[in-house]
Amino acid sequence: MKCKDIVKELADYLDEALDASLRTSIEEHLVKCKDCRVVVDTTKQTIEIFCNSEPAPLPSPTRERLHQALIKRLRRPRPGITPQA
């Protein structure tokens, strides 16, 4: 297995979507190749950083407009449904 093969399989490797033999081949390469280890590790961290990031609170005017629009709509019943307060 070569470095370019690692890059090709990187997404499936990180998503644990590879069969066992391909995974083993990649891990054998990673033991020997520091550059690929760094690429795999920093790509994994990239995903984790975004995945764990908390969305910011809505800006107050944006939230106010959203909730006003919803209140207006929620006052009207959906077809066939009687709203409960």
Binding site: L70, L74, P77, R78, I81, T82, P83, Q84, A85
Partner: peptide, 8 residues
């Protein structure tokens, strides 16, 4: 089933 507070 029409419970608006649940949608909120």
């Amino acid at each position: 089933s029409g419970d608006v507070s649940a949608f909120e």
